[in-house]
Design a protein around this nucleic acid. Sequence first.
RNA 1: CCCUGUUCACUGGGGUA
Length: 246
Amino acid sequence: AVSYTALIDAFCKVNNIGRAMEIFDEMVKDGFAPDAYVYYTLIAGLTRAGRMNEALTFFQTLKDSGFSPDVVCYNVLIAGLFNTNKADKAHEIFEEMEKAGARPDGVTYNTLIAYHAKSGNFTEARKQLKKMVREGHVPTVVTYGALIHAYCLNERVNEAMALFKELRGSSKVAPNGVIYNILIDCLCKKDDVQQALGLMDDMEVKGVKPSANTFNSLFRALREAKMVQKGFELMDRMVKQGVNPD
RNA sequence: CCCUGUUCACUGGGGUA
């Protein structure tokens, strides 16, 4: 079954869900009983493809086969449902999860926080953050990344920067490349290329390596601002830092 | 006995309105 899972996962990841489902059928036809992971993998693949109805069908089959979905499986579905604007269904699955005795973990809370914050409901997001901590889960760089990104999306850049500075100043959760990318991209879109470049310098100070994403955001902004010279300087810098363009 | 198979935050492009 592990081989089947790996095969199904491989096809899902290259976006060939159809082939993955065929393999599932073959597996059943050949008399192999799918284990929970086969279902998990298919559910994740369908979810990644945004095919939530089919994912939910397999989820039902999984339960009908006598398996108890694990936390990760619930997390997959909840995130997928939020991403496809099915928040009601996501909450429904979340409740089912709690009833089934599958304890929400840090990822579950990060997903909820990201959803509420992006929707502009920071009150609810902070509430979930408190609950998360109360339940014994430690907020991570992902948690703060979700909040910072959401502040940016909701035109609350000051709060995004404030939270960033809070992280930067404390030694608990150090900002990583993604955090910088979120802010750099946000500033670029606000046409504050100067401050974005400043953050890039700060990355160097902090020993955080820029990625292709970092440069892409800046190139786009420089192109739009017609700052060609800066663009060339940045290319040099990209080469020097050993970042491959994508 | 151990390891390994499912999840969360960042870019861009295209389609329909």
